[in-house]
């Protein structure tokens, strides 16, 4: 399955919907979207990975790159993910300590609202 990307902004939070496989072939498209969003002043990003079937280290690299970019603007990049197969790769690499990971978009929005 290819990669489908969409995004919308709610309050100050930009929600990026990702569907499909994030690998060495498709990850550059996600990287371009994250860079474009940051360049347009969206510094609080929430990446919804609930419909991601596959994520490899290339995808992790893109997410880490996005996090570095938003942090340069005192922003945030957090994730929505409950799939064990995806969470496992974050645990193996220790990135659960780097990203905020939520169980739903609503939960993330609530936490983000409290941080305002």
């Amino acid at each position: 399955m290819d990669l489908k990307l969409d995004h919308r902004t709610e309050d100050r939070l930009t929600i990026v919907e990702v569907e499909g496989e994030i690998d060495v072939y498709t990850a550059p498209r996600l990287r371009e979207l994250l860079i474009d969003l940051v360049n347009k002043g969206n510094f609080h990003l929430l990446v919804n990975m609930e419909k991601v079937d596959f994520l490899d280290s290339t995808g992790l690299g893109v997410l880490v790159g996005g996090l570095k970019r938003v942090r340069a603007h005192d922003g945030s990049l957090e994730l929505v993910c409950t799939q064990e197969r995806i969470l496992k790769i974050f645990r193996i690499t220790g990135l659960t300590k780097v990203f905020g990971i939520y169980a739903s978009v609503d939960e993330a929005k609530e936490a983000h609202g409290k941080d305002k």
């Binding site: 490899d56 280290s57 290339t58 992790l60 690299g61 880490v64 790159g65 996090l67 570095k68 942090r71 193996i92 690499t93 220790g94 990135l95 300590k97 780097v98």
Partner: peptide
């Protein structure tokens, strides 16, 4: 892990980990 040291070259070896 330290976010500051996660350069692109560092990430390229993430696959082995």
């Amino acid at each position: 892990l330290d976010l500051g040291m996660l350069s692109d070259s560092f990430m390229s070896n993430f696959g082995i980990a």
